[in-house]
Design a protein around this nucleic acid. Structure first.
Lengths: 192, 192
DNA sequence: TATCAGTGTTTAATTATTTCAACAAGACCT
DNA sequence: AGGTCTTGTTGAAATAATTAAACACTGATA
């Protein structure tokens, strides 16, 4: 390599910008992060400028100083949005306090399976009293961001992320973003 | 480094085992993967035996030959107990003749509900012999176009369209477009 | 048996990364 | 102004990763 790793063959993902963004977001200087990570500040500088592609073990040391796992770090490169085109559906729609449901298959009372296309307006919430029913349910987030609480676990899911749990565990959905969140979910047996 | 990266300071996560497991699962030899990735077989061997910690750019090259993203690779951390949340790249994937399935919720044999993200390559087909099983199933098309045959009914669905039927009725899915088709589907009880 | 094609491993040479140390620019204080 | 912090960057030396080529092993075939 001469000077810039990109001068060769545009090799390597843009690790540098991501690391810099994360570091700056946490208010750490290159030297401070280097100290916590047990590397030199030069290493941080070179990585951030994409002048070297760190070994996995080096990158792990750096991330330990943040701290952040390798999985979390690389998860940030996931597709920004799902490319989905919707045409006007024939699905019946039920709206209630910022949450709209459109359901596949007309009569849910005679079905084993309930499939919904859910839309949460910004700030919409299934409510402070947690939901709980005799089912199992799961879903995939299409767009937006939603905070899912299941028992004592809580995470914010984005496009492409999913969930699956026993519906008897108290749960709650809340759109914590500033844009609507769309989910395709399934529940068996149906929850009315 | 002297001989073994672990002789130094037990540095680095166990990248080697993970890479080896993935490679063997796909039925690739070290040399074949090396050829696809544009590296030498020695590199693969050393990485798998944790005798070298690959640079991120090298690891990316290797994963491109599988193919798999860095995020997916590092997201492959085994569920400690019951897994509720799934990151986008984290879902286990099964591919067969142009159709790939990624499933929410690890163990389908103990679940009431099976939720899949399905991807049909252009021309992919569930087969001339119609499917039939004791379930009910439905889904929503995210992108692409797919011809769905259920009993004596047949339709081509596009993005946003959906379906729901009794799985005992013989059915078949076929990508009649020239681009991949993605579907989120659900089935209860699971069809193995 | 001999041979061929495949596998994974190992060593020396090459190439890349990391360190050590110095440098330049900016902010802040006296 | 001059100090004195801090910041991020860069060059030469030290260290680690990658390659190229050979090795040893397995199973299939003639």
């Amino acid at each position: 390599m001469l000077n810039d790793i990109k001068s060769q063959r545009s090799v390597g993902p843009d690790i540098g910008s991501r690391l810099r963004a994360i570091r700056e977001q946490r208010g750490l200087s290159q030297r401070e992060l280097a100290r916590r990570a047990g590397v030199t500040n030069a290493t941080i500088s070179l990585i951030e400028k994409n002048k070297s592609s760190p070994s996995v073990s080096s990158l792990k040391k750096v991330l330990d100083g943040i701290p952040m796992t390798l999985a979390e770090f690389f998860a940030l490169e996931l597709p920004p949005e799902e490319q989905i085109f919707f045409r006007a559906g024939e699905l019946p729609e039920f709206t209630e306090e910022g949450v709209s449901f459109r359901q596949l298959g007309g009569d849910q009372s005679r079905q084993k399976l309930q499939i919904l296309r859910e839309r949460y307006a910004p700030g919409a919430d299934t409510g402070e009293t947690m939901l709980s029913h005799e089912s199992e349910e799961g879903g995939v987030v299409l767009s937006g961001r939603i905070e899912v609480t299941v028992g004592d676990q809580q995470r914010v899911l984005g496009a492409g992320d999913g969930y699956y749990f026993d519906s008897r565990i108290p749960h709650r959905f809340r759109n914590v973003g500033d844009e609507p969140c769309e989910i395709i979910s399934a529940c068996a047996p149906p929850y009315l």
